[in-house]
Nucleic acid binder design. Structure first.
Lengths: 145, 145
DNA sequence: TCCATTTAGTTTGAACTTCAAACAATCTTG
DNA sequence: CAAGATTGTTTGAAGTTCAAACTAAATGGA
């Protein structure tokens, strides 16, 4: 029991660090920083493509995102489009180049998932899902002052 | 099966994002950035406390770390100590203040682990360990060019 | 309608982080 | 001992982020 505890603890920490590091390397497209890739990712997945909504999702100010979008526009990954209904609002759209990056990122996640469940039986997979949901649920509801 | 796959994928992604975000908030000590906290953590856990070794572990240049250590020294979290055997080398030591921060960080990880295994039987915990080790093992050995 | 207020996005200047490169001090080895 | 390697520091440039000031557009109440 105590052993399980420290093992889970240990693996969570090292796994987390590994993923952070590897994500940076795996997605290391020349001319794109990891920050920029996350912006591209957010734009590709966004329901609401407005700059303010994206900024909230990314937990940065609209000012920061505006600068970042300008850079990515210049690099050919994003483009701005004014809304007709509300001419203050601007939707951010991915270009083909951005969608390619997004595909790469998805492949990364798929590989990770494959690795996680490859050696598990279906019953074991169900347990994994349960455990992961426990952790996620915990953090989703926890209040941090 | 396909459902398990997408669930694991989904949970891994959202969990990862949650942890990233929450770690920043949970460890938000006034006057210390998340970067600085990671430096403190590395110093507290280091086997080899030399600046170069720490920089390698943190995957930053010695120049960057030298600057960061200077700041943290000024803030009273770290101190430098020249080695007697090799007077080029400098060991970085944590102060009491730094050890307090480290304790906080450990508490964070413990809470995370508790959340992970609280609702699982011992058999289920064993499965979780196995799955996590699969992922970690995969990433530890994968080569990224 | 008019105008005060709110909302959406941009620009700018300051602070911080990181790196590469140049540098100084100290070992190591032939 | 001298050349080269190692350890750490400094510095200048580039990138990131934010707060604050700003422009443009929508909204709502008189």
């Amino acid at each position: 029991m105590a052993e399980t505890y420290s093992t889970v603890n240990q693996v969570l920490v090292t796994l987390f660090n590994h993923i952070l590091r590897i994500e940076e390397q795996a997605l290391n497209t020349p001319g794109l920083s990891i920050r920029e890739i996350h912006v591209i990712e957010a734009v590709c997945q966004a329901q609401d493509a407005r700059l303010t909504a994206l900024a909230q999702g990314l937990h940065v100010t609209t000012g920061s995102l505006s600068v970042a979008v300008s850079t990515l526009e210049r690099k050919g990954y994003l483009r701005r489009q004014r809304r007709q209904q509300d001419r203050r609002a601007i939707d951010i759209h991915p270009t083909e180049k951005a969608l390619d990056i997004q595909k790469q990122h998805e492949a990364f996640h798929n590989e990770m998932t494959d690795a996680a469940i490859a050696l598990l039986s279906e019953a074991e997979q169900a347990v994994l899902v349960k455990a992961l949901e426990c952790i996620d649920d915990y953090f989703a509801h926890k209040e941090w002052t």
